[in-house]
Amino acid sequence: MGARAFFWVTMVAAVAFSDGISSAKAAGKAVDIPSQEWSFQGIFGTFDRGELQRGFQVYKEVCSGCHSLNYIAFRNLVDLGFNEIEIKAIAAEYEVEDGPNDDGEMYSRAALPSDRFPAPFPNANAARASNGGALPPDLSLMAEARSDGSNYLFALMTGYRDPPAGIVLAEGMNYNVYFSGHQIAMAMPLAEDGVDYADGTKATVAQQARDVTAFLTWASEPNMEQRKRIGVMTVLFLLIMTVLLYVSKRRVWAAVH
């Protein structure tokens, strides 16, 4: 009797906790973020390599002018389906600072696969100075650093609108339905056919937003596929083991009951 009631109250408590936590996370966001279908959602979800490569192209050609990607190295691009030679070639397009050399001076050299993506600005102050006082955040963890990150990123990039009547935008601000407070310093980053996809995909704004969201989701957690794969095996293993333990327990206790 008591035990059963205890169970139900615990369950209700768990639901209440999760509601409390999620509502706490959602606080401050006026608009609900619409959910999209993603190839990487669910416990069997994986990344779509084509989508990742297109998203990388969008990052490279559009975002990287202002946003760094500090925690991703060129070698990580192997996850996107590039081979070693391609990765070397991609890395070589970038210059990184190295040194000091024997004369004590820092010098630039072509990037190697082991290097991380160079940041567009040397420091936060330089970034602010070039962006009207606003700091373009690092994008490596963007999909995890925002609640419901992937859906939020897609919504943000496709959420630019003309401000509704009566709303006066501050200097240099843009109106975005999904940004907290609706006024965002970043101008609409994506344009129709803003990039030229190698695989012939039509580069609509929605398509680019989708691709770069997938890319940034991967960048937030490059090990996601390994995590889910190991997770499925672990849970299956534990299910079988627990059934065996249950049968053992029943047998051991048979003499007592």
Partner: peptide
Amino acid sequence: RDFIQVASTTMGVVG
């Protein structure tokens, strides 16, 4: 019972 015991022990070791 032996089988169950051997199986659970084996799984425990593998785990």
